[in-house]
Amino acid sequence: MERTETAGAGELSVPGALLDGVPRQRLRAGTGVGADAVSGADAASGAAEVADPGAGSVEAVVPVPVVQEVAVRAFPRVWRLLPTPTGTPFTFWYAVLLAVTSYVADNADPAWVDSVLQASSTDVTHLVQAPVLVLVASALWVAGGLGSPFAAVFLLVLTALERRIGALRTALVFLAGHVVATLATELPVGFAVLVGRLPDTSLHRLDYGISFGVAASLGAVTGLLRPWIRWPVLVLFGGMLLQDLVNLTDPVSNWGHLIALGVGVGTWRWVRRWSAESTEALRRTALRGPALPTAS
């Protein structure tokens, strides 16, 4: 739910609805709140008369902020569910990049695409040879293309998270899930090969995509949801990941998704603090109006 107050100029918005369990307000700079509210007569005129004891009967007119009625919006604007270049730059431009790489993967020469994906794979061999490069390269592709469910989840979840904690912090959460889940799944594979429990071919496997980062971001954003929606989302998503693990569709990736989700849940403390700081900064900016002139 969004609440809207109108007065003055310069509009700032704070998304509300399910996040943080507290409806957010759309405030305009210079809007008075609470003790700054004026009486009906003064609010209508936008000014209050203040007697100047040093000027005898002369009165000074001091303008005061005007507080108008609050319009309640039952649902957030649909466009706020999707990324925008100014509101959510990290999610927006990352989505553009993924759209480009997905188009290339669908239309370029299959042999060339296969070689590029192999080079971007975060398998043990590539992690030993060029860990930073391969971790970045693997996150430039969407496994399954734009039709993958993770592509839709990417747009919705990262947009919601970035609107609450900012671009850099959202990138940090995404990167933490991507890196931690990758290392937590590939390093045991390397150790198992070293002790002879797995064949050498396990060192070369095709593993790329954004799914670990998306799982971590979803886990993080649930910390901002109200409890009645937070736990069903976690149970539903976690149940799907567990089902994949039971079916042994891809044990390494399945474990990675669960680990990434745990990484996201583990960031709740910081995500909530960052969200509160961001909300307070927006509120202070919205309520900071022009200085009132003093009587001479």
Rank of each mutant, 00 (worst) to 15 (best):
residue 1 M to K: 09
residue 3 R to C: 00
residue 3 R to G: 08
residue 5 E to I: 13
residue 6 T to Q: 05
residue 10 G to P: 03
residue 10 G to A: 09
residue 10 G to E: 13
residue 13 S to E: 14
residue 15 P to Y: 04
residue 17 A to W: 11
residue 35 A to K: 14
residue 35 A to T: 14
residue 37 A to Q: 02
residue 43 A to H: 13
residue 44 A to H: 12
residue 51 A to V: 09
residue 54 G to F: 06
residue 56 G to S: 14
residue 57 S to C: 09
residue 58 V to Q: 03
residue 67 V to T: 07
residue 67 V to A: 14
residue 68 Q to H: 14
residue 68 Q to T: 14
residue 72 V to A: 06
residue 75 F to N: 06
residue 76 P to T: 08
residue 84 T to S: 14
residue 86 T to P: 01
residue 88 T to D: 06
residue 90 F to G: 05
residue 90 F to V: 04
residue 93 W to L: 12
residue 94 Y to E: 02
residue 96 V to K: 00
residue 99 A to G: 15
residue 99 A to C: 06
residue 100 V to R: 09
residue 100 V to M: 13
residue 100 V to C: 09
residue 100 V to H: 11
residue 102 S to I: 05
residue 109 D to F: 10
residue 110 P to E: 12
residue 112 W to L: 15
residue 120 S to Q: 02
residue 122 T to Q: 03
residue 122 T to Y: 00
residue 124 V to T: 02
residue 125 T to D: 14
residue 127 L to H: 04
residue 134 V to F: 04
residue 134 V to M: 07
residue 136 V to G: 08
residue 137 A to N: 11
residue 137 A to D: 06
residue 139 A to Y: 00
residue 156 L to K: 01
residue 157 V to Q: 06
residue 162 E to R: 05
residue 163 R to T: 01
residue 164 R to I: 05
residue 165 I to M: 10
residue 181 A to Y: 05
residue 182 T to N: 07
residue 182 T to I: 05
residue 183 L to G: 04
residue 185 T to L: 02
residue 186 E to S: 15
residue 186 E to M: 15
residue 186 E to I: 15
residue 189 V to Y: 04
residue 193 V to N: 12
residue 194 L to D: 07
residue 198 L to N: 07
residue 199 P to I: 05
residue 203 L to Y: 10
residue 209 G to T: 03
residue 216 A to R: 00
residue 227 P to D: 07
residue 235 V to Q: 05
residue 237 F to C: 05
residue 238 G to E: 01
residue 240 M to S: 12
residue 240 M to N: 10
residue 242 L to F: 07
residue 242 L to R: 06
residue 242 L to C: 15
residue 245 L to I: 11
residue 247 N to Q: 15
residue 250 D to H: 10
residue 252 V to G: 11
residue 253 S to P: 08
residue 263 V to L: 09
residue 263 V to E: 00
residue 264 G to D: 04
residue 269 R to C: 10
residue 270 W to E: 11
residue 275 S to M: 09
residue 277 E to Q: 15
residue 280 E to S: 13
residue 280 E to I: 11
residue 283 R to Y: 12
residue 284 R to Y: 04
residue 285 T to F: 08
residue 286 A to R: 01
residue 289 G to C: 03
residue 289 G to F: 08
residue 289 G to L: 12
residue 291 A to M: 11
residue 292 L to E: 10
residue 293 P to C: 09
residue 293 P to L: 13
residue 295 A to F: 00
